[in-house]
Design a binder for these strands. Structure first.
Length: 495
RNA sequence: GCCCCUGUAGCUCAGUUGGUUAGAGCGGCGGCCUUUUAAGCCGCGCGGCGCGGGUUCGAGUCCCGCCGGGGGCACCA
């Protein structure tokens, strides 16, 4: 059995073998291929900014020290051009044998694309193209790359490799780098928006003895010392509402939730969720806040509230369209759910057989996702849901049978969900009992009874509005990405 | 879990109705070249076609199973 890189060389492809051989030559030349630091460097973008507009053929005395990965090389015998890229940008290096000396020059042009180097030189612009470059007189290897980079022309296309080896995707594909910068800025601006309005960011348990706050199947894990099963949270809702009871009147949490379900272009088993709760607010306040927040964040991260998505243009500017669930289903399917208030009647109207495992609420939900949701391209609030689907939402103040709840849709995908929170502990207890009956009937996504949560409500929770916003989906809409996987650095993969 | 598509050099791809030692561009290796920009010119295939079986005189091409990826269904936010 081989037990070291050297012993494995025989098994390597020629490309990998070449790089290892070069590594050996570098060491033989007395050069450390993995030194410890390269301090006092400038970012490439800063160098570029300083010399913007430098005339073609100009040479300056302005010295710069930059570092980055070799992206491309164009050799010329006694001079060569190297494209160097760091996290801020890319710049061309002009390597000349007369400036570097014969030995340093020879070692430099023997480097591979993908190697990381630090260089020093003076700013200049090439004679013909006028491209800003650094005429370098010193260089130093900072890290030898032992694997070849993706194709410099076509980048990395293979989706499997792009997701499994995201580092290669980021090296090769500019668009991918852009997406994750948009994602980072989106999260920063959301925090800023909430912080500026007096919201307090908190962290509640990911490992929970009882899961709740959404209708979903959890992941189960085990705590050895306590010898008991724990659940990865499916939502932060119940903990955050306890904090509202405790007097944190404006509170939010931004983090991962986990749901034990399928993977698709809009589902990942772990995903990033923002939940916020505001005391003394209701679902009209939260709708107003969401549309303002999303438009504001779009403005700050993308420079506009308008974004291109495929061949359509989405405009996040408020106010968003508002329509009741009943009206939306009527428009799209011709079925008035209010006229078919039982499972049997609604199933008949839909032309299907009543399924004993599907209540009236599930049928309504089916109509929503099948007939309504795909058509909701521009930002839209769907209002007032059946109580069966919403165990934590307060009954509508005037419409019987529905609760004060909305879901926001963009690009045919649900991005947010909100209620006027149920704060009547006795009603909450009845809702849990209803859910318990659903569990008994075999619904493994119903809510387990949470007595501690009811006790918190008994302490007295002010009227409250709460929102859950799917960050991954929002970023997907902001970037025009067609799949959630494009905006998750490491999306879920089999094995 | 089911259905459809897919898997060829490091990367991006082409491989006729199954037929001689599997091709191209980029990359790599060797050579030339002091202002290139997917630099250029000359020379060299560096993989045996996801894995395992099978059919056949002969399989990258056909069949079966398995694995990975994509899309759809189911499920869901």
């Amino acid at each position: 059995m081989s037990d070291g890189p050297a012993d494995q060389q025989a098994d390597l492809s020629a490309v990998l073998r070449d790089r290892r051989e070069k590594l050996g030559r570098i060491r033989d030349a007395g050069i450390e291929p993995f030194p410890h630091e390269f301090s006092e460097r400038e970012e490439i973008a800063a160098v570029r900014a300083e010399h913007e507009g430098l005339a073609a053929g100009a040479e300056t005395e302005s010295r710069h020290r930059v570092a980055g990965r070799i992206a491309a090389r164009r050799g010329h015998g006694k001079n060569a051009f190297i494209d160097l890229r760091d996290g801020s940008g890319q710049i061309q290096l002009h390597a000349r044998e007369d400036l570097l000396g014969e030995e340093a020059y020879a070692l430099l042009v023997d480097l591979d694309i993908g190697d990381i180097v630090g260089v020093e030189g003076t700013a200049m612009a090439t004679r013909r193209g006028g491209e800003l470059s650094l005429a370098i007189d010193h260089w130093r290897l900072l890290s030898k790359s032992l694997r070849p980079p993706p194709d410099k022309v076509h980048g990395l296309q293979d989706t499997e490799t792009r997701f499994r080896r995201r580092e290669l995707d980021l090296i090769a594909n500019e668009e991918s780098r852009r997406l994750f910068q948009v994602r980072a800025r989106t999260i920063t601006e959301i925090r800023r928006f909430l912080d500026e309005r007096g919201f307090v960011e908190v962290e509640t348990p990911v490992l929970q003895p009882l899961y709740g706050g959404a209708l979903a199947r959890p992941f189960t894990t085990h705590h050895n010392a306590l010898d008991r099963d724990l659940y990865l949270r499916i939502a932060t809702e119940l903990y955050l509402k306890k904090l509202i009871v405790g007097g944190l009147d404006r509170v939010y949490e931004l983090g991962k939730d986990f749901r034990n379900e399928g993977v698709s272009h809009k589902h990942n088993p772990e995903f990033t969720m923002l939940e916020w709760y505001e005391a003394y607010a209701d679902y009209e306040t939260t709708a107003h806040d969401l549309e303002r927040m999303v438009a504001h964040v779009a403005e700050r991260t993308l420079g506009a509230t308008v974004v291109e998505r495929g061949d359509t243009t989405i405009d996040f500017a408020p106010p968003w369209r508002r329509i009741t669930l009943r009206q939306a289903i009527l428009e799209r399917s011709g079925i008035d759910i209010a006229e078919h208030p039982t499972r049997e009647a609604l199933a008949r109207a839909m032309g299907t057989e009543p399924d004993p495992n599907e209540g009236w609420g599930k049928l309504v939900d089916g109509l929503l996702s099948r007939d309504v949701e795909p058509g909701l391209i521009q930002p839209t609030f769907i209002l007032d849901y059946p109580v069966e689907l919403s165990p934590f939402a307060k009954a509508h103040r005037s419409e019987p049978g529905v609760v004060e709840r909305w879901e926001a849709f963009v690009g045919g995908v649900e991005i947010a969900n909100s209620f006027t929170e149920l704060n009547d502990p006795d009603e909450q207890r009845r809702r849990f009992e209803q859910q318990a009956a659903e569990i008994a009937r075999g619904d493994d996504e119903a809510q387990p009874y949470d007595e501690a949560f009811v006790e918190a409500l008994e302490q007295g929770m002010p009227p409250t509005g709460g929102v859950g916003l799917g960050i991954d989906r929002l970023v997907m809409m902001f970037t025009g990405a067609q799949s959630l996987r494009e905006v998750l650095l490491f999306p879920a993969m089999r094995t």
